[in-house]
Deep mutational scan, measured.
Amino acid sequence: ATNIVSKVKWYNSTKNFGFIEQDNGGKDVFVHKSAVDAAGLHSLEEGQDVIFDLEEKQGKAYAVNLRIK
């Protein structure tokens, strides 16, 4: 899926990962520091509106092509 609009559930800049809620009630989506860095960001804030693409690797959903709404 591409261009999903949602909100950051939480992000831990010390552990370099977090999760984004899915508005459709699906499972929370993992977001890694590499996606945050690629977006030119230093961190994410809880409740922040984001747009991302969903990529599945080894049966897990990852946020990629992250951008701020």
Rank of each mutant, 00 (worst) to 15 (best):
A1K: 15
A1M: 13
N3M: 08
N3T: 08
N3S: 09
I4W: 07
I4S: 06
V5G: 08
V5T: 12
S6P: 02
K7Q: 06
K7P: 03
V8P: 00
V8D: 00
V8C: 03
V8G: 02
K9T: 03
W10T: 02
W10P: 00
W10R: 03
Y11H: 00
Y11T: 00
N12P: 00
N12D: 11
N12W: 09
S13D: 09
T14F: 13
T14N: 12
K15H: 07
N16R: 15
N16Q: 13
N16C: 13
F17E: 01
F17Q: 02
F17L: 02
F17H: 05
G18F: 04
F19P: 01
F19K: 02
F19D: 00
F19E: 01
I20H: 01
I20R: 00
I20L: 15
E21A: 14
E21W: 15
E21Y: 15
E21C: 15
E21V: 15
Q22Y: 15
Q22S: 15
D23A: 15
D23T: 15
N24K: 11
N24E: 10
N24H: 12
N24M: 10
N24P: 10
G25V: 07
G25P: 08
G26M: 11
K27E: 08
K27S: 10
K27V: 10
K27R: 12
K27Q: 10
V29M: 04
V29G: 00
V29P: 01
V29I: 13
F30H: 02
F30V: 02
V31N: 01
V31L: 07
H32W: 04
H32R: 04
H32Y: 05
K33H: 08
S34E: 06
A35G: 03
V36W: 03
V36I: 11
D37E: 14
A38S: 09
A38V: 08
A38K: 11
G40D: 06
L41H: 07
L41C: 08
L41P: 02
H42R: 13
H42V: 13
S43F: 12
S43K: 12
L44I: 08
L44D: 00
L44G: 01
E45N: 12
E45R: 14
E46K: 15
E46R: 15
G47M: 05
Q48C: 09
Q48E: 09
D49F: 15
D49C: 15
V50N: 00
V50C: 03
V50L: 10
I51N: 03
I51K: 05
I51W: 08
F52R: 01
F52G: 01
D53C: 04
D53W: 05
L54I: 15
L54S: 03
E55L: 13
E56L: 14
E56M: 14
K57Q: 10
K57T: 10
K57R: 13
K57G: 08
Q58Y: 14
G59D: 07
K60S: 07
K60C: 10
A61N: 10
A61H: 12
Y62W: 13
Y62F: 11
Y62R: 09
A63Q: 02
A63Y: 03
A63C: 05
V64G: 04
N65F: 04
N65H: 08
L66P: 00
R67Y: 05
R67P: 01
K69L: 15
K69P: 14
K69T: 12
